[in-house]
Amino acid sequence: MSLPLSELPTDTVAKVVTLEVGQDYRRRMAGLGLRPGVAIRVIRRSPLKGPLQVRVGHTDIILRRSDAVRIRVEPMPQTRGVPADAAHPEVVPAP
């Protein structure tokens, strides 16, 4: 069962399932290492509904909550508290 990245609790590792964004935005995300199949973790949320700080591989990224809504992720079992870079980024073919 997947949920939007915006609702993923802090410090829980999840796997990116789909990116429901335009092609250009998807390319930029891919440039930063954010693509289907990779492990992702929310580090912190900015107050006043500001951006999220997420970690993908060795890169920390900030993105707006309105964009995070369109990224669906699936929490990985028993990974709470483990950094995203610890969970091996397993590759699944893009849907």
């Binding site: 930029r28 995300m29 900030i62 993105l63 707006r64 964009d67």
Partner: peptide
């Protein structure tokens, strides 16, 4: 420009 940037 969407806000999508690296936090170095």
């Amino acid at each position: 420009e969407p806000l999508l940037m690296e936090l170095p």
